[in-house]
Amino acid sequence: MDNFSKITDDSQNREYSNDEITVFWKPGKCVHATTCYKELIEVFNPRRRPWVNMYGAPTERIIEIVNKCPTEALTYKWNDEAKNKETINLKNERLKKGEGQNVTSQQAKPVTIQVMRDGPLVVQGDFEVFDEKGNKLKHMIMTSFCRCGASNSQPFCDGYHRKIGFNSEK
């Protein structure tokens, strides 16, 4: 694990289960894209405690939204270990960031950079990341870049923007 886990308070992490899957919630990784609660308020409702209601929608629908979350804030696992092995976990695939992939330009998905208010740059699509020395770090399909200057896992966001109260609008 990266430095991040030590800095952000892991005790905030939560797990929510229904009969089929368990959803993992890491608030430190949330960039407030609001995707989850805009799309499925029956399950993800920040005004409720606990904020995730695993019986608010069918499992397939919950997985669909977890897959849409652009960060590691929401992930899931089947409760049945065998099922984790036989089914493709799209979210985990994406979190592995498509490393080492070789996509031709025809197959490459267009890149969007979403600028998060008081938070990072959320990048999705097919892209390549190079370090300060010009070395190719990796091919990625989803990540968030720090724009507050304070992350401890530069160039990526580690959630620290909230600790420093980053205000991107001033």
């Binding site: 070789n102 996509v103 031709t104 490459a108 890149v111 390549e128 990341v129 530069q154």
Partner: peptide, 9 residues
């Protein structure tokens, strides 16, 4: 990979 966007730190 020429047309694939590059992010350089």
């Amino acid at each position: 990979n020429n047309n694939i966007p590059e992010f350089k730190v």
